[in-house]
Design a protein around this nucleic acid. Structure first.
Lengths: 223, 223
DNA sequence: CGGGGCATGACAGCTTGATGACAGCTTGGC
DNA sequence: GCCAAGCTGTCATCAAGCTGTCATGCCCCG
């Protein structure tokens, strides 16, 4: 799950990025609308965090512009404390949620999880499938009832595959979901590596990751 | 456990803060409703102590406002001696408890402990788990029957971890629970330090604190 | 049988956490 | 008030575990 944070205050942007990173999201930071547009052109995001007050324009205009071009990426808007009309206006413009600054990082995390899982058609963070039990909120994984430790990247990959269960995910798509621009120079072999590591941990769970040569990977029930 | 004290008389606020600090709570003081709102936006509290008579408005209105926005943080209200209707009104507005000024600090402490443990779904201050026996009221700790001395911070950390047993607690969350704003500049290494100290004291108790790299710590039974 | 894509073990760099020693400060006893 | 004891948090150093690279060997497909 890749997130674009459009926010010009470095402290805020970085705190959010760190917190969301821990929660399994890959984040890119865009301090201006121009940067944001550039990012969106290059890759697509599972969601966007948008500050309304930016150096090169209003986030509201930007949001309206995106919606007019048919972009349906979930957007969470950050508003200043007292601008009620901004908040309401943003929702009218097509924002999916808002948060008043200053906000609690845990809340941002929870709301983004809600937005992205809504996109995936789920109502809660927990997914149980055959012998597998994954909770994106607690970042915990159980296989046949036993807790299995997995690293941040492994969990992020699993999350992506689970959200697209039954679909073949191209390697570059998985790559985009795991790494932001700052890790852009990582070799493509990495995905194969993490698939291998995940497979070991999922062994015997009744769920497996199939390889489709030249196409990508697909997670589904055994058989 | 972090507590917000909304009280404009410095003497009272500071006495309460000191007393509660000794009892293992991390306190922030807000002398006005505006300050209180700012604090609440930034972090969240295990409970709130609310004076009703404040320079920029009535605590009752504030309480009503919080409840209307869905905030369920336990609130203990401080009332003047003779305003019975305030007291009753506050309870109606959603206060969880009240104390008449002037009050005994020990009583404040005991009532806050009651409120926070109710939140954690417990009926008493004492938690026994495997070879561990912790009493938040007496601030006493026993491991396999033997009394173990532990400092305020160690106990506060243990309390937090116990209240969230089985959940991974991010380091910054533990940090928030242990330190108020006034200690905001304490190095993050501190949490690791206290985890190490606690681990030593819990050795052999059947309960242990697991490290989850990049995510946080989790307290649970061994195994 | 040859080639490209994939799997996987080993490894090194680096980030993150663990821990001992220490100095300042607080606290409590006298 | 003074002193001693112990609590606190910083620093430096060391250990562990995560990450991604590489190299090698495999497998599928032509």
């Amino acid at each position: 799950m890749r997130i674009l944070i459009v926010e010009d205050t470095p402290d805020v942007a970085e705190a959010a990025s760190a917190s969301l990173g821990r929660a399994g999201f890959a984040c890119d930071i865009a301090p201006t609308l121009a940067d944001a547009r550039a990012c969106i052109d290059i890759t697509d995001y599972a969601a966007m965090v948008l500050d309304l007050n930016l150096p090169d324009g209003s986030g509201r205009d930007f949001l309206r512009e995106r919606r007019r071009t048919g972009d349906l990426t979930p957007v969470l808007v950050l508003t200043a404390q007292f601008s009620v009309e901004d908040r309401v206006g943003a929702l009218d413009e097509g924002a999916d949620d808002y948060l008043v600054k200053p906000f609690d990082l845990r809340e941002l995390e929870a709301r983004l999880r809600a937005l992205t899982r809504r996109e995936a058609g789920r109502a809660e963070n927990r997914i149980a499938l055959a012998g597998l039990d994954f909770d994106a909120g607690a970042q915990s994984l159980r296989v046949n009832g036993a807790a299995v430790t997995a690293t941040r990247r492994e969990l992020a990959l699993l999350n992506l595959l689970l959200a697209n269960r039954g679909r073949i995910m191209p390697k570059d798509r998985l790559f985009d979901g795991l790494f932001g621009f700052e890790n852009a120079d990582v070799g493509t072999n990495t995905i194969e590596l993490y698939v291998a590591r995940l497979r070991k941990k999922l062994a015997g769970s009744g769920v497996s990751i199939e390889t489709h040569r030249g196409l990508g990977y697909r997670l589904d029930l055994d058989g």
